[in-house]
Simulated assay, not measured.
Amino acid sequence: MKKYTFFLACVLLSFCISCRDIGKLVNKQKSSSYFIDSKGQIVYCQNGNWFSLGVSQMQADAESFEVLAEDIAKDKNAVYFRGMTQKLVDRNSFYVDNQIPKDRFHVYYIDQVLGFNIIDGADPKTYELIKNHTNWARDKDHYFYADDMIHVDRQTFSFVNDYFLKDKDSVYVSPNIGDFKSVVANPGNVEAINKYYMRIGNTIYYPPFEQGSASIAKSFNSIQTIRVLDLDVICVNNKTILIRGKNFKYDHVDVPSFQLFTVDEKTDFYAGNPYSKDKNNVYFNQEVVPGADVKTFILIGDDFGKDAKNVYYQKQLLKDVDAPSFKKNGDFYKDKRGNKFSALTGNKV
C-alpha cells in the first residue's frame, strides 16, 4: 500500500509539473528562460524549471522586450540579467559581444548571483576572451583575469602552461590558484614540461596548489632527460622522481623501471592513483607494499590491489582472502570464501 501511495504521488507530481503553463518563450533560439505569460507579462524562469527554481515576475515592457543571450535581455527602459534590472549599464549603447556584456563606456563581468560588475580599465571595443584559457581576457592595452586587470607587459605576456605565466620581466603564478604573483625574474629560457610543471634552465617548478604556499622549486646540476608519467609525476635524468614537485619518499626506488599503475588501459589514464611500482617493489603513496609481487600485481579499485596470491588494501595485506575471486560488488569487495570488505574504508564487514 505504501509503495502504491508513493507511486501515485509521483505520478500526480509529474502531472502537476507538466501542466504548469509558464507561457511562451520570447525567443527560443536565444534563451530557454525568458517567457511571456498569458497576461502578456515577461517572466524569467531558468531553463523553464519553475518547480525547482521558481518564476520571477518582471516589470519589463513586453512590446520592446528583446532577448540578447540566455540570461540577458533588454527593453526600452532597462537591461536585465536573469530577470534582474542591471543599474550600472548604459541602456542605450548596451550590447552583447561573444557572450560579453558591453556598452560604450564599460565591459562587464557576470556575477552569476548579482549580475554585472564593471571591469575597471577594460576597453569595450577591443576586449575579448582568450580561447582555451577560462576567465582570461585581453584588450589592446591589458590582460584580465575574471574582473581584475593583470599588471604585466601586454606585448610580451604569454601562458607557459595552465599555472605559470610570463612576460619579458618575470615568471608568474596564475591567479586561477590564488594570488597573482611573481615566482622569479625571467631569464629567457622558460618552458613548459606539462600542464603543471615548468622548467627554467636546470630548475623545475611545480605550482603552489595549497593555499598560502609557494611554488616548489627543485634544482639540478644539469638536466639531460625528463620522463613525464602524469601531471604530478616526472622522472629527471633517470635518477630522481618528483611527485607534486617533491622527491619520491622511498630513497631506494629504481627510477629507470619506475612506472604508475594504469587505471584505464584503453586510455592509459592514471587518475592520480597512489599505487606505483619499479622492478623491485610495489608502492602505495610512495611507500613499499610489503610482499606484493611486482610481476602479477594489478589495481582492482581505489586503494585496493592484488597479485596472484594476495589482496591488499593500501599497504595492508588482507588475510585469508581468495585473490583470484576477489572483486568489487556494489559498495563492497567480496571473494568466494564469503569475505566482505568496505570499498570506502577497507574494513571487513
Rank of each mutant, 00 (worst) to 15 (best):
S158R: 15
D307R: 04
H133D: 11
D254H: 15
D123H: 06
A308T: 10
F116R: 12
Q41I: 09
A323N: 10
L317Q: 12
Q29D: 15
N92C: 06
M58F: 05
H133K: 13
G330H: 13
Y333F: 15
I36W: 11
S170W: 11
Q211G: 04
C10K: 12
A137F: 04
F261I: 01
Q211D: 06
V190R: 00
K328M: 15
G305M: 01
N92I: 05
V294A: 08
G40H: 13
D123R: 07
F332Q: 12
T134Q: 15
A308K: 15
G83S: 01
L129P: 05
S215E: 12
V173W: 01
A146Q: 15
F15H: 13
V255P: 01
D322N: 15
F180N: 06
S182V: 11
R244V: 00
K279Y: 00
Q41C: 11
K328T: 11
A78K: 14
V289T: 04
L229C: 02
D293Q: 13
S325K: 05
D148T: 14
S257D: 00
P324I: 07
D264S: 03
P101F: 07
T296R: 12
N49R: 14
N176G: 08
F94Q: 03
K309P: 00
D264W: 09
V321M: 03
A343I: 06
G178K: 12
N189V: 00
N189D: 04
A343R: 10
G338K: 06
I22F: 01
N49M: 03
I193H: 00
T345V: 10
F284H: 07
N238I: 06
L12T: 14
G83M: 02
Y4L: 14
R104V: 00
D123M: 08
D268T: 09
F209K: 02
K74M: 11
V26C: 02
A122M: 11
G245E: 04
C19A: 09
E210M: 08
K30T: 02
F332P: 01
A214D: 10
E66R: 14
Y4W: 05
N27Q: 11
S213F: 00
D179K: 13
D335N: 09
T85P: 08
A73V: 10
H106F: 13
A217G: 03
S325R: 12
V228E: 09
M198D: 04
F65P: 03
H252A: 15
K249A: 07
A343T: 03
A217Q: 08
M84Y: 03
Q155T: 13
S52R: 12
S276H: 02
F326M: 13
A217C: 02
R104H: 09
V171R: 04
S325V: 09
D169L: 06
H151Q: 13
I241W: 05
V79H: 00
Q259M: 15
G330M: 11
K3Y: 00
L68V: 07
L8D: 02
A60K: 09
S215N: 07
E265Q: 08
L12V: 14
V190S: 07
A60H: 09
R82V: 02
F144M: 05
S276R: 06
Y196M: 10
D90H: 01
Q211M: 05
H142C: 14
N280I: 00
Y283C: 01
D139E: 10
